[in-house]
């Protein structure tokens, strides 16, 4: 729990669609593009499967950064999932910015199955942003901290 220590490494949750971005991540591997190890990939069928609840819950659980990535518009394996997702993400992204969640905590990208290098670049840039921001504290639930408060009340 000593988050501020100098060798702090963020943990970044990435929700990747199975058909494009997850495949892009695989291609990055096949091509040996190196990127920071902070990312934890969660495979989902489609970016349209990713809900605001999932994103917020991941933040609550302590993700220092979040990346949601799907197929480029028009490429969705499920025809239109990423179009609906794009609207939902646009609104969520703006709302989070509005309440003061640091830009860069929650990130969205389109990465296709052939964009291995781009995937590595996205991870690189997201990781750098999150590192620059430091450990997430906003909307991160802390059971220990609350405990102290309650014990004295």
């Amino acid at each position: 729990m000593t988050e501020q220590s100098t060798n702090w490494e963020p943990k970044i949750i990435a929700f990747l669609c199975n058909w494009c971005s997850y495949a892009g991540a695989d291609l990055a591997g096949v091509s040996r593009f190196q990127y920071p190890s902070n990312i934890r990939i969660v495979r989902v069928p489609c970016s349209g499967r990713v809900s605001e609840n999932m994103i917020m819950s991941a933040l609550k659980s302590g993700a220092d950064g979040i990346l949601v990535s799907g197929c480029h518009p028009g490429d969705c394996h499920y025809i239109s999932g990423n179009y609906f997702a794009r609207r939902r993400f646009a609104l969520l992204s703006n709302l989070l910015d509005f309440i003061g969640i640091e830009p860069g905590r929650v990130n969205f990208s389109w990465v296709s199955a052939s964009e291995g290098e781009q995937f590595a670049e996205v991870v690189q840039s997201v990781t750098e942003k999150v590192k620059a921001l430091g450990p997430a504290s906003r909307l991160v639930k802390k059971i220990d901290a609350l405990e102290t408060a309650l014990q004295v009340a």
């Binding site: 480029h72 646009a90 990208s109 389109w110 781009q118």
Partner: peptide, 24 residues
């Protein structure tokens, strides 16, 4: 309703600055 529909060219500035995105 706005979230039950979409346009091909919906704005996506929120994804900007990401390499590999924003092409469209």
């Amino acid at each position: 309703l706005p979230l039950t529909t979409y346009a091909m060219d919906d704005p996506q500035q929120f994804m900007a600055n990401e390499p590999g995105s924003g092409k469209e």
